[in-house]
Design a protein around this nucleic acid. Structure first.
Lengths: 178, 178
DNA sequence: TCCAACATGTAAGGAGTTACATGATTTC
DNA sequence: GAAATCATGTAACTCCTTACATGTTGGA
């Protein structure tokens, strides 16, 4: 039954940064929280309509090129209540690890290839985080520390997983010609 | 449209370890791949029925206490084809990070509390991985290396995130009384 | 004898993605 | 004038969880 709709809070959260169009809610998600959250338009637009009905969001303007949505007081209250509630743990599904676990069903080289690809994507990700980190370091507002924390999380994770990839590739190489 | 049904491959994969009942498919997932994959009965049983219809799985026995399912040759072929395909990247949704990003909407102490809870759960997780690692080290089969890799992944990640928690808690403490 | 574990399923319903469809405005 | 970006939405469809419902077997 009722799983909580987390998209609600992502949208409310993006609006807490200031009024925005549906399009911009999406863009904020892509640009600022992309690696750890995402929403599709198929979620955002119907949701904005519902949030307006519920009085959590209001339409503050409607010029020729779309509407602007803003949090109402009760929308902000609902966001804060959610922020204060303990986060529900991630029950991730990691395809790479499932494939790794089942590695014996294929040749070792198949898995090694997947891991090399994964490593390459982590290296790219890490580079993007570094750029991001430099950009944030130049800012000077009270939100800065929170942005920094999300970036350092990504960096910590990416670095650890790159190290794991190297370890894994060694282990697999040792296994195939012992 | 057609997202690939990854549950299919998880079930086929568990059956590649040997014939099993639906109940045991679930138990294998819980016991062996739990932190990075999971399936509910609501997925497993209907799926097993479909896989039998499709000829990827067959019923090898039915005693008083349930059926036993086994991979057919084509089921195994389909599993291998999936294993060889590049894993689709995880598009995770990390509630803690979304809450962290929006940390300015509440008091800093709220976020710190979430991070402390997260750290505690990581410590528990890490302990479980260590036990698991010791168990696997005693095994002596050709699958061992693959199990080890999934465990070392979990350890690498948990250790990195524990370190991040400590860093984050420092940063937040510095912010609240500068 | 009772409890834990083994075992199998269905129903309801929301979550979420993808593809389709359309149009205005800005910038080069 | 063309391309990129801004902008809004719907339809179809699958995934997946949660809750409900039921019964057996083995061991203490």
């Amino acid at each position: 039954m009722a799983r909580v709709n987390r998209s609600r809070y992502a949208v409310l959260g993006m609006l807490s940064l200031g009024p925005a169009s549906g399009y911009e809610v999406r863009r904020r998600l892509e640009q600022r929280v992309a690696p750890y959250w995402h929403e599709s338009y198929g979620q955002i637009y119907p949701l904005l309509g519902r949030l307006v009905e519920e009085g959590l969001v209001e339409v503050t303007g409607e010029d020729g090129r779309g509407r602007r949505f803003a949090l109402t007081a009760s929308g902000h209250a609902e966001l804060v209540a959610w922020l204060e509630a303990p986060p529900t743990p991630v029950r991730g599904r990691n395809e790479l690890l499932l494939k790794a676990f089942l590695g014996a069903e294929t040749s070792g080289e198949v898995l090694a290839g997947h891991i090399r690809d994964f490593r390459a994507s982590l290296v790219d990700e890490l580079a993007a985080y570094r750029v991001n980190q430099a950009t944030i370091a130049e800012r000077n507002d009270e939100r800065r520390v929170f942005s920094e924390l999300t970036v350092t999380y990504g960096i910590a994770e990416a670095e650890a997983l790159i190290a794991w990839c190297d370890h894994a590739l060694d282990r697999l190489a040792a296994g195939t010609h012992p």
